[in-house]
Structure formats: C-alpha cells, structure tokens
Amino acid sequence: MPEVYPVGMAEIRIAKAPDALAAYGVGSCVIVAMYDPKSSIGGLAHVILPDSTGVAPDRLNPKKFADTAIPLLFQTLSHAGVFKGNLWAKMVGGAEMFPPTEDFSLNIGKKNSEAALTAVKKLGIPVMATETGGTIGRSMVFRLDSGRISLTVLGESSKEI
C-alpha cells in the first residue's frame, strides 16, 4: 500500500512514487511542491512566513521561511540524486483567512505566495501551476506517481492541478 505522509507547519519532506505527500488545513501558509518526473521523486515545503531577514542565525529555523525553506527543499532533493533540470514546482495556499477589519489586515498569505514564487524563480525551477490566494483554506495530496496535486476545500468538490 502506498503511504501518504503528512507535512506539517515548518516541515520539509521528500518521498518517491508510489507514496504521496499531503498538507491538511492550509490557510495563509504556502506549500511548495517540487517534482522530478523522471525519477518520480518529489518533496513539499510547508512555509509559514515570507522572509527570514532579521532573525538571529542561531534562532533561525530555515524550514519556516520562504526564502530559506525553498532552497533547502531543493538541496534535499539534490542530495537524493534528483537533477535540477528535471524539476518543476507547484504552489498551493497563501489565502487570507480572516477578512480585514477597520483595525487590521493580516495579509500574510499574499506575502507568503509572492515570496515563495520569488524563491522558486531564483532557483531557476519552472512553476507549472499555482493555486494560491483567495479566502479559503485548502487540503492537498501530492501524488508522486503522477506529480498531480488533488485539492479539497470545505463544502466544494475537489480539483486537480
């Protein structure tokens, strides 16, 4: 039986077909998926914040921030023997869960998606599909036999990217 490995907040995980990777109840976080169709190896980074600037290096958990987690995901895949030229990326999440009021807007989702896109482009990895923004939470399963991502949101039928 293929396994489905959940990837929680500030985690990075890679796996190989026929297994799958999943992230459940994603709001403003951004999930970056990278995949090599030749080896059927892929990975997920569950990013919670856009930018690690200003965080003391001894306190820095690189898996949290888009600018550090995405290069780390790429490195982890490289160590597993994946060639950069084969890789593509997909992105999910970055929603604004709470409508802004007169007093505040969190706006973290948008910053996360923008920072993730910048970080992926900086690595020169093509972005195949994105399902980001909006105001709804998402769950996703990343199938490593096909590289397809199935998405579910509350009360709506699922979608694939």
């Binding site: 109840g25 709001g27 403003s28 976080c29 929603a95 869960m97 939470g137 509350l154």
Partner: peptide, 9 residues
C-alpha cells in the same frame, strides 16, 4: 473554514 487554515494565519 478548516481549523488548521484559520489557525495558521
């Protein structure tokens, strides 16, 4: 929404 999605933001 989903509890996880509300809390992460």
């Amino acid at each position: 929404d989903m509890a996880g999605a509300l809390l992460d933001s």
